[in-house]
């Protein structure tokens, strides 16, 4: 059984007018069944309002199912006695690093979580050191977070999450506010934690190229899973993705267009390296 498992998960919220009368009901999640294996790197794609953030908020028990179940590492999220354990198991990294950082110094910020959990002082400092090392921020340990770049702040947010030793890390558009260098830093840090520490990563993103490096891509639409598969499988379905207000990485798009115009290229080219190699093979063959 996977570390995150949802079974026919349904979530609705009631829309009310100014006088608090019920106007209607929106179904944000409509029967989502998922089984995420421990150690996987999962990317969730979907247009604004497709339900992906609502799904993420169920995994660390910020929201609770109206119907169906969410089980994280064997714990049902509706079991209130397990609430803290669940949030410790599945840590969350949000979009805006400025809303997550609270400490005066980087190390204080990272220490806050384990301190709150009652971890002994000695061990807190050890965890702070390890976590900052894991995201490459050791040199900034005694700096003020205010002086850091967006990518550095977001890496501190990640360190603060992993200092609580979670088994999974849920990242809700962690790079939406970052410059290209910052985006690279954060995505590389997530992959490194996944590979070296075995942390399960669930990455929600609007950047298609960030999903290309995942083990599995899940595409949400209208509160349901619309597509599921390896990045290569999902990004081969270019027209279907476009109909869901999404896109494919630009190199995938270019390969798809060239193929339509008669160039002999494979399906589901994922990045520029694959595209350049495939095109050079065609070029040499023609020569």
């Amino acid at each position: 059984m996977g570390i995150i498992k949802t079974n026919k998960l349904k979530y609705e919220y009631i829309r009310r007018d100014e006088d608090n009368n019920v106007e209607g009901i929106t179904t944000a999640l409509d029967g989502v069944s998922l089984d995420i294996k421990a150690g996987d790197f999962i990317a969730i794609l979907g247009h604004n309002g497709s339900g992906k953030s609502t799904l993420a908020r169920h995994i660390n028990a910020i929201l609770f199912p109206a119907e169906g179940t969410v089980v994280v590492d064997g714990m049902d999220t509706t079991d209130s006695s397990k609430l803290l354990d669940i949030r410790r198991t599945a840590g969350m990294v949000f979009q805006n690093p400025d809303n997550q950082i609270i400490g005066q110094l980087v190390e204080e910020d990272v220490a806050f979580g384990p301190e709150n959990m009652g971890v002994p002082t000695e061990e807190i400092w050890q965890r702070v050191a390890e976590s900052l090392e894991a995201v490459g921020m050791t040199a900034y340990r005694e700096h003020s977070p205010n002086r850091l770049s967006g990518g550095q702040k977001q890496r501190v947010s990640i360190a603060s999450v992993i200092a609580m030793h979670p088994k999974c890390m849920i990242m809700d558009e962690p790079t939406a506010m970052l410059d290209p260098g910052g985006r690279r830093e954060v995505i590389e840090a997530a992959h490194k934690l996944n590979k070296t520490e075995g942390i399960t990563v669930v990455l929600i993103t609007h950047y298609m190229d960030e999903a290309a490096g995942a083990d599995k891509v899940i595409v949400m639409d209208k509160g349901r899973i619309a597509m599921e598969g390896t990045p290569r499988e999902v990004f081969s379905r270019v027209e279907e993705l476009k109909s869901l207000r999404l896109d494919v990485p630009q190199s995938t798009e270019l390969a798809w267009r060239l193929k339509k115009r008669g160039v002999d290229l494979p399906d589901g080219v994922l990045d520029r390296r694959e595209l350049v190699e495939a095109l050079i093979r065609v070029y040499k063959r023609n020569k």
Binding site: S149, G151, D179, P180, G181, G182, D209, P249, Q250, S251, L254, R272, R273, L275, V276, L279, I280, Y283
Partner: peptide, 21 residues
Amino acid sequence: KLGLAAPEMTYVMNGLKAAGM
């Protein structure tokens, strides 16, 4: 080097050029 980048296509085209296309 400045923490920025170029559009994806710039890298693709420069890669192709470097290989002789």
